[in-house]
Write a protein that binds this DNA or RNA. Structure first.
Length: 615
DNA sequence: GCCGTTTTCGGCCCGACTGTTTTCAGTCG
């Protein structure tokens, strides 16, 4: 019996990327397009919304755009036998160390191979350490095609990689937004700056951000760049050009600034907002119409071709775009909200004028997951502010309802009767105040609870306790390492109580700290539709859970979503905007989200006992 | 090797920067 090794999406992507690199160094001209194809397939697998193993089992590998018959066949072989004969042939004759060197910034396939051959480093084990010794002893600078500067930059990349490890340290969206708004505010004080906007993954509201990219509209780029250098917190300048600058902050975060003339600012925004795949798709489409796109605008291509070279462009014929809207309109498309620009069907939808009308922050009428300082004697975190303060803050941001959902009392320290008495106490407090809150502020306050789903699927409060709650939120806070099947059953059982109406932070992921657990989401989502359960987008910056790709899948099946802040203090309530970003990335409209509904409609969904809301 | 709003054949994004080069290759976003 052969041992069965499972391959994650990341494993398969890495393999495909190595094959791409191998093709590139073996015979670049002959393999030019295979290189691109394998690289694209790698990215597609990396970004796939499903586990590649599941797709393989369901014989649906070809649903990934970029994976065709040939590569699908190779992946099939990989899962069946643990290796791919064709890949081994392509990789044969190349030193394994080459693929280690590819992990370094600034080193591509050609450079990696050259280093291996001229330094006689073959094996992958210890390759990076050996490279470091060669760099430190000045042996790289002497090689043909390398100099002192490239030796230094290789050493820098090595130190960066060996120090920080494989995982790139990415910022949370909330942190990146705060940092960028400081920089944007600073830039806007500069006289020559007409506009300044975030770019890249930050503008697309990805859950985590690598570098902070910023666009500036100006006719005097040199002056803006020189002023920008004075921004407090800049540690050193990485590179500087006529139209842009990259700098490292004291915190180690990198800022890339690009200055552009106002008359072409729209094309700049479009180009650097990306994503890379959105842009490639868009430009291929434009090429077919005889147009060429760039950050400077749109150029008409000359119809005649010159050999296999690309068609010549005449820069004088370039049309500049002051706004992004005009850029997209010129291509016969609707403007695409940045959050959607991931090449996941938004281009096709835009051409058909069929983009979703995305939910906005102002559509929210309430927050259903708040932790007040009411002492539930929980083993989890207690909130830090009073119910009164939460209500006042909710009124201030325009909410019409909210729900207090503190953690359940700890099971180990309480008997069933203790738990019931604590919840009785909470109910009587809310009951005492909710009518006066409603009269004074026109807001309804719901008495809920966030209840642990225990490993066997049982909820962590006695049955009798449900009588003292309007509804409950269920979630997982322990035993994350169950099998996919066990986890699925656990969640389904947890959700099956009639008062369990919301599944909170469904995957349990903590960005940068912990992967989400595996579960059969399709089965869970189907259950939620059938039994009218809502799935939460938890807006806490380190969670942003459900992730956007699953949000889109859930809503596509008809699941209702709720966007909650999971606030433990008043200031946390502001996090809700990040939840809205996730919803928008998941293509949600307001109607998909239950806390955009009126209280009447919401109360039907939550199956509230309306006798509790009339005096 | 992949793909289809002119296509199942004939294409495959675009430009900047760096470092090593005297005119360009490699890498990146």
């Amino acid at each position: 019996m052969k041992k069965t090794k499972t391959f994650t999406n990341a494993d398969v992507a890495k393999l495909l990327r190595n094959v791409s690199a191998a093709y590139q160094v073996k015979d670049e001209q002959a393999n030019r397009f295979k290189t691109i194809a394998y690289d694209r397939a790698a990215t597609a697998v990396e970004n796939a919304t499903s586990e590649i193993k599941d797709l393989w089992e369901e014989k649906k590998l070809n649903t990934i755009s970029g994976v065709g018959g040939s590569i699908a066949g190779h992946i099939d072989e990989l899962f069946k036998t643990g290796k791919v004969k064709h890949f081994q042939e392509v990789l044969s004759g190349l030193p394994k160390a080459m693929f280690e060197f590819l992990k370094l910034k600034g080193i591509g396939p050609k450079t990696a191979l050259k280093l291996c051959l001229s330094l006689r480093i073959k094996n992958s084990k210890g390759a990076l350490e050996r490279l470091k010794i060669k760099a430190r002893t000045g042996q790289i600078g002497k090689l043909a095609g390398f100099g002192k500067d490239s030796e230094k930059s290789i050493l820098n990349s090595l130190n960066e990689y060996l120090f920080s490890g494989e995982k790139e340290k990415r910022m949370l969206l909330s942190y990146a937004e705060e940092l960028s708004s400081e920089i944007l505010n600073y830039l806007r004080t500069i006289k020559e700056v007409k506009r300044a906007d975030p770019l890249g993954s930050l503008r697309r509201k990805c859950a985590t951000i690598g570098d902070i990219d910023i666009a500036v509209s100006t006719t005097k780029p040199d002056r803006v760049i020189n002023q920008f250098i004075k921004f407090p917190g800049i540690n050193r300048v990485l590179k500087k050009g006529k139209r842009g600058i990259s700098a490292l902050l004291d915190s180690g975060k990198q800022i890339d600034l690009i200055a552009h003339p106002p008359k072409a600012y729209g094309s700049l925004l479009q180009h650097f907002t990306g994503s890379k795949h959105h842009n490639i798709h868009l430009r291929e489409l434009a090429n077919k119409k005889g147009l060429s796109l760039s950050e400077y605008g749109i150029t008409k291509l000359n119809p005649e071709r010159t050999g296999n070279k690309t068609r010549k462009q005449d820069p004088k014929k370039r049309i500049a775009f002051e706004t992004e809207e005009n850029f997209y309109h010129f291509l016969g498309m609707d403007w695409i909200p940045p959050e959607l620009r991931e090449d996941q069907g938004e281009i096709e939808a835009s051409l058909k004028h069929d983009l979703p009308k995305l939910i906005q922050l102002k559509n929210l009428k309430g927050d259903l997951h708040l932790h007040s300082d009411f002492e539930t004697e929980t083993s989890h975190d207690l909130g830090q502010d009073t119910m009164d303060d939460f209500v006042k803050n909710a009124v201030k941001v325009g909410y019409r309802y909210l729900a207090f959902a503190e953690h359940n009392p700890s099971r180990s320290r309480h008997k069933d009767s203790d738990i019931i008495s604590i919840l009785k106490g909470k109910k009587s407090l809310v009951d005492k105040k909710k009518f006066s809150w409603n009269k004074s502020f026109n807001i309804w306050v719901l008495n809920a609870l966030e209840v642990d789903i225990r490993p066997d699927g049982e909820l962590a409060i006695p049955m009798k306790a449900f009588d003292y709650l309007d509804f409950v939120i269920v979630s997982i806070h322990s035993s994350f390492n169950l099998s996919r099947e066990e986890m699925t059953q656990r969640i389904l059982r947890g959700l099956s109580h009639p008062k369990a109406k919301i599944l909170a932070h469904p995957t349990g992921r903590l960005l940068g700290l912990r992967e989400g657990y595996e579960a059969d989401w399709k089965t869970i989502f189907d259950f939620c539709v059938k039994k009218e359960k809502a799935v939460e987008i938890n807006a806490y910056p380190r969670r942003l859970d459900l992730p956007d790709v699953l949000v889109r899948e859930a809503a596509g099946l008809g699941v209702k979503i709720v966007i909650n802040s999971d606030s433990h203090s008043l200031t946390d309530m502001d996090f809700i905007k990040h939840g809205v970003s996730v919803a928008r990335k998941g293509w949600l409209e307001a109607k998909n989200v239950i806390n955009t509904w009126t209280f009447t409609k919401l109360s039907r969904f939550l199956q509230l006992d309306l006798r509790n809301f009339s005096e």
